[in-house]
Design a protein around this nucleic acid. Structure first.
Lengths: 225, 225
DNA sequence: ACCTGAACACCGTTCAAGT
DNA sequence: ACCTGAACACCGTTCAAGT
């Protein structure tokens, strides 16, 4: 009962520490963010995990922002965003879902960027593919750019403003919060709390929203032709 | 030439300091965020602006997160999200644009929340109105919830992942960045840099994306009937 | 009851010095 | 050339004490 729990060693590394490069540092940063959230990513702690002094990192990145940018770019580069076969709707769906998968694997990465467009080469490759599909489908450059912006924003926004995998306890808590709202003022939210909460979690609402956007694009394309 | 610039007094207040309340503290926090960005919002500086000791704030909020939550809620409550007249499409457009206006007035507020759904009463009032419009239009609760989620996410995502009002210099810089990409790998991005950048700034791409979503909803509704 | 200075355990980054 | 300890100017928050 009073036995001490043996906590695992704080750093577990097989073999020698990886040679320090911008890439190795960014990967370690993504690891750390994914494990413990963006707030856990401090220069000191990251350096410690890499077996280096905190100041060593400044030999590779001019500051923390540059490191975060590079890490977000790198998260994108792990996916190739190749354009698949078939009609444009299926191609676009596949591409957007690949983007979402990239963000799901690095749920903290999205927190690294706010209040400015995401303009690094890794994510621009997704844009290149997406706008290419839309141009091929028959949209002009203006329509294609706006449509891509919508798809991109929905994907990043969804990753940013939703919980990745809320526990049943968390879902129950949300349901309680909604149900507790005054029913006269919030008839839908309070009355349909159960169904609404089941639609807040997971990937299903994302997929549904994506199909809605694709419906809109098909309708728009029909008008252009 | 060597004349010292007289810097303005750091705190400029007319009349006595406002009585401290949760509301007054949250308003001061929104002010501070809007002026100098989320990073400038520290408990110490906020307290200083309110003419109080840093620890005083902890008499009103249990921690900084709770204060940020309350401030984001309060930003929403400044708008009433009333449902207007006319067909559902116009009602929904108006509602979403009101949400965007609220976020535009407090560009930093959106940074306060990430990795969890936005579930405070202020923003839920917008959801109540939006889902109400969709139900009235003929969608069932599941479709309405997913559609609202899409609209909400697009709006918050757009506020989060775009620059509010990029300067011409900033736009020129982005254009340079895009044009500098290798043309073989990024034919669209590099080739159409000028047009793409003009579509990255301001509210126009948001309005366009909103219409695309509304097109999708109309197409879906036609199938349901 | 309401407020707060001092203190604690942190940050990012500069600087000057180590090898 | 590459790395880093000490130091600076900050953080959020606890605690114990003020009024």
């Amino acid at each position: 009962m009073t036995e001490m729990q043996t906590s695992p060693p704080p750093v577990k590394r097989r073999g020698p520490p990886p040679k320090l490069t911008r890439e190795a540092i960014a990967d370690a940063a993504l690891d750390l963010i994914d494990r413990d959230g963006i707030r856990a990513l401090t220069m000191r702690r990251l350096a410690l995990e890499l077996g280096a002094g905190a100041m060593t990192l400044y030999g590779y990145f001019s500051d923390k922002d540059e490191l975060l940018d590079f890490a977000l770019d790198r998260a994108a580069r792990r996916f190739d965003f190749a354009i698949g076969e078939g009609p444009w709707r299926a191609q676009l769906r596949e591409l957007v879902q690949t983007m979402m998968r990239a963000l799901t694997e690095h749920p903290g990465a999205v927190e690294t960027r706010a209040r400015r467009p995401i303009l690094n080469p890794g994510w621009l490759r997704a844009g290149e593919a997406g706008i290419g599909i839309l141009l091929e489908a028959g949209f002009d450059i203006t329509e294609a750019a706006a449509a891509w912006r919508l798809l991109f924003t929905f994907t990043f926004g969804y990753a940013a403003f939703s919980a990745a995998e809320p526990s049943p306890a968390q879902q129950a808590e949300w349901q309680r919060q909604l149900a507790a709202l005054p029913a006269e003022q919030y008839p839908v939210m309070a009355g349909e709390a159960t169904q609404l909460v089941s639609w807040m979690a997971g990937r299903r609402p994302f997929d549904h929203g994506l199909e809605l956007i694709l419906d809109g694009l098909e309708a728009r394309l029909a008008l252009l032709r």
